[in-house]
Amino acid sequence: MRRAELVMAIVMGAFSLYLMWKSAELPIGWTKGEGPGGGAWPFWLSAGMLVCCIWIGIRWALRTSPPSRSEDVYMDRRAFRLFALNAGALAVTIGLFHVVGAYFAIPLFLIFYLRFLGGHSWGLTGLFAVLTPIVIFLFFEVALLKSLPKGYTEPLFEPIYAIVF
């Protein structure tokens, strides 16, 4: 935990420096007739972030914050496995939205989660995998006219659009 506290402070400190540099693409000082430049607000806020990171670093060195004193492991093997499985499955699902679209990515994610992670029966898994995209389609596409990504499966929806709209 102690090492993670320092690593996070360094990473966020570096990110603050990047934000300061990025903000400085616009004027950060006083522009005559216009007031503070467009970059001033994010620049000084990023500077504030950097100061906070240095402050966190000092507290780490002095061991005054709870994580800097902690002997616990930041993430044990089991926690890491759960984190990687869930975050990884989400990333793959979102990636699949671009390729096969929401209405195929969602059932695939549900099958993976309910059947393989949750150990539920095929019957229950199938029920959720079929019903969830139908409910989402009816609510978002039909009722609210919000079209979700369909990727390469777009042509498959044209007959449905012809019936519904």
């Binding site: 869930n86 989400l90 699902t93 979102i94 939205f97 929401a102 969602i106 994610f109 549900l110 989660y113 309910l114 992670l117 949750g118 150990g119 539920h120 229950l124 959720f128 969830t132 989402i136 978002f140 979700l148």
Partner: peptide, 14 residues
């Protein structure tokens, strides 16, 4: 929870 979690994840994405 193993039913609720994927539903919540999907609601988050949508």
């Amino acid at each position: 929870f193993t039913i609720l979690a994927p539903i919540i994840f999907i609601l988050c994405i949508v």
